[in-house]
Nucleic acid binder design. Structure first.
Length: 558
RNA sequence: UGGGGCGUGGUGCAAUGGCAGCACAUCAGCCUUUGGAGCUGAGUAUCUAGGUUCGAAUCCUGGCGCCCCAGCCA
């Protein structure tokens, strides 16, 4: 796919980048995607990824995918692979893949340089002491008793930290800046900490010290010649430190620009909570279609194009903002409307017998595959005496403004005939078992010879020619708009977030579908073939419903 | 109560001293062999108080509100 469309409007980042090119601050553009391989990509990452990708692409620059693997305690190769897959699926291309760990050696040399300059020191305080002496938001911190160690001693200690001589937590290397800086980030931030276990997924046991984000990220950006290091607002207060390190070292200094992260209503973005959801089996794995991880959305039937369109539409700014989930759904509908084949499927079947239709006749009727796309052509569907319609398309006593089928009313069976409901058959408990209709043979194809109109067209499948299927109806996973704020996960799960319809019937053409295929089930919504679907057992996921104005009317009626 | 950031319809984003606009959502209508899609229209906004200016969402000053920061996480 091509997601390089140039019609993206301007914003403060694009303006800044353009200024930098114009002023000569940089004469090329290079950005980076800096995921930490400790989880699957979700919709929140996509915004950041796409901004980086577009800024590079729009300026004929390039993009480096750099895994931020500075903490072996949290990171796994599994995610390194998954992140690449997901990013590729989105349509993102990169110049190369690198790892923060590729630069451990050079970064260590830079640290030694700082130590020699008297700008960094080894601190023997316990983590508790470090924390206590950092001060508070309103009170300055106090200097570590180890702050004025000699360069020689610092060099010696740092080398021994690196070689694994000291246990975890006993010492750190800190930048020597200012313990009274009103910005807490600048109060002698940690650069290296000691971590012996587990082995790093790439460097094994070569290192016993690992760089902190602040010490690694900006230096890596510099080493890779990144021009613009785009990140979320919470890093704004880290920018002075980002620049301090590079100024001290006299190295190439990229420009860090911050923007606000994506907040999406009803979506869980916190990696920790996402993990908790999965591990407590509240959802069915990382690709449960109710999740907003990329693999889940893909399984649900969301297209990369729709997701990219969504990100373009939300814009880029510095405000804390909440995006309505309805916007995402609108983008999904918009894309799927243009591309998906129409099919007829009955989620909750109600048997209809057409009394005056010949018992053994089967007619082949032409049905349009996609009214939005004439090239998609037509298919044939079989029509016969016994068919299924949607239970919801029949009411024994119709509410106001209901103009589907009810006793005495005439409707059109899509692509087939006008039918009129004559009678209702119920079981001993009063449940409707089947309905009987008569059809008008002169309305074949759906148009009446006498010009009479029907108010409604409903879909159907032939009982004998349709296939059984399971349909999974998904709704939002949570009952509250901001699930990230709530710790009691089980209490905020929407009980109807997944409703399985085991007895659905779909038209015969759906018999040879394969996982990932996308369809519009006419009048219902967009569906895709689930990855567990087989010829023997068809399974469809509801991606999103069609806009349903009757549902609105009905809801208003109470 | 230190520092940093941000305040434009319900939501998000524009307008860079000159008619406050776009999208989603909402409501109404048209059209329709999907109560889909499409089309038309409507309502609702510049946090606040001053100031500068012919003219302020935009510049200045004060207030108010919201977000971020006290990991050896990123």
């Amino acid at each position: 796919m091509d997601i390089n469309a140039q019609n993206t409007s301007s914003d403060f980042i694009r303006d800044a980048v353009a200024d930098d090119l114009r002023s000569g601050r940089f004469n090329y553009i290079r950005t980076r995607l800096p995921p930490e391989p400790n989880g699957y990509l979700h919709i929140g990452h996509v915004k950041a990824f796409l901004i980086d990708y577009f800024i590079a692409a729009e300026n004929n620059g390039d993009l480096i995918l750099r895994f931020d693997d500075t903490n072996p305690a949290k990171e796994e190769v599994e995610f390194v692979d998954a992140i690449q897959q997901d990013a590729k699926w989105l349509g993102i291309n990169w110049l190369k893949i690198t790892y923060a760990s590729d630069y451990f050696g050079l970064l260590y040399e830079w640290a030694i340089k700082l130590v020699k300059m008297g700008k960094a020191y080894v601190d023997d305080q316990t983590p508790e002491e470090v924390s206590k002496n950092r001060g508070t938001l309103t009170e300055p911190g106090i200097n570590s008793p180890y702050r004025e160690r000699s360069v020689e001693e610092n060099l010696d200690l740092l080398a021994r930290m690196k070689s694994g001589e000291f246990p975890d937590g006993t010492r750190i290397l800190r930048a020597k800046i200012d313990m009274s800086d009103p910005n807490m980030v600048m109060r002698d931030p940690a650069m290296y900490r000691i971590i012996h276990e587990p082995a790093h997924h790439r460097t094994g046991r070569e290192w016993c010290i690992y760089p902190m984000y602040d010490w690694s990220h900006g230096q890596n950006d510099s080493m890779e010649g990144i021009t613009h290091s785009l990140c979320s607002m919470e890093y704004e207060i880290h920018r002075p430190l980002y620049e301090w390190f590079l100024d001290q070292l006299g190295e190439f200094k990229p420009r860090q620009i911050e923007f606000s992260r994506l907040n999406l209503s009803y979506a869980m973005m916190s990696k920790r909570k996402l993990r908790k959801l999965v591990e407590s089996n509240l959802v069915d794995g990382w690709d449960d279609p109710r999740l907003t991880t990329l693999r889940a959305m893909r399984r649900r039937g969301y297209t990369a194009e729709a997701i990219v369109d969504f990100i373009k539409k939300i814009g880029v700014a510095k405000n804390t903002s909440w995006i309505d989930y309805a916007l995402l759904e609108s983008c999904v509908r918009d894309d799927l409307n243009k591309r998906s084949l129409r099919r007829m499927a009955i989620i909750e079947p109600l048997k209809m017998i057409i009394d005056n239709y010949p018992d053994d006749l089967v007619e082949e009727l032409a049905a349009i595959n996609n009214p939005e796309d004439p090239d998609a052509g037509t298919r044939t569907v079989n029509f016969s005496k016994v068919i299924y319609i949607e239970q919801d398309d029949f009411r024994e006593t119709p509410p106001p403004k209901y103009y589907r089928l009810f006793p005495g009313n005439e409707v059109r069976l899509r692509y087939a005939y006008f039918v009129r409901c004559e009678s209702v058959v119920k079981d001993a408990d009063g449940n409707i078992v089947e309905i009987h209709c008569t059809y008008d043979p002169t309305t074949k194809g759906g148009d009446s010879a006498d010009g009479r109109k029907v108010k409604s067209t409903i879909h159907w499948v032939s009982a004998a020619h349709s296939l059984p299927a399971e349909v999974r109806e998904y709704e939002r996973l949570f009952t509250i708009e901001n699930p990230d704020d709530n710790e009691e996960l089980s209490s905020i799960i929407n009980p109807t977030s997944l409703v399985v319809k085991p007895s659905s019937r779909v038209e015969a053409s759906l018999g040879n579908t394969t996982p990932g295929d996308k369809f519009q089930f006419e009048r219902i919504g967009y569906f895709c073939t689930d990855l567990t679907s087989t010829k023997e057992k068809l399974v469809f996921n509801r991606t999103v419903t069609l806009k349903d104005s009757w549902a609105k009317i009905e809801k208003k009626q109470g």
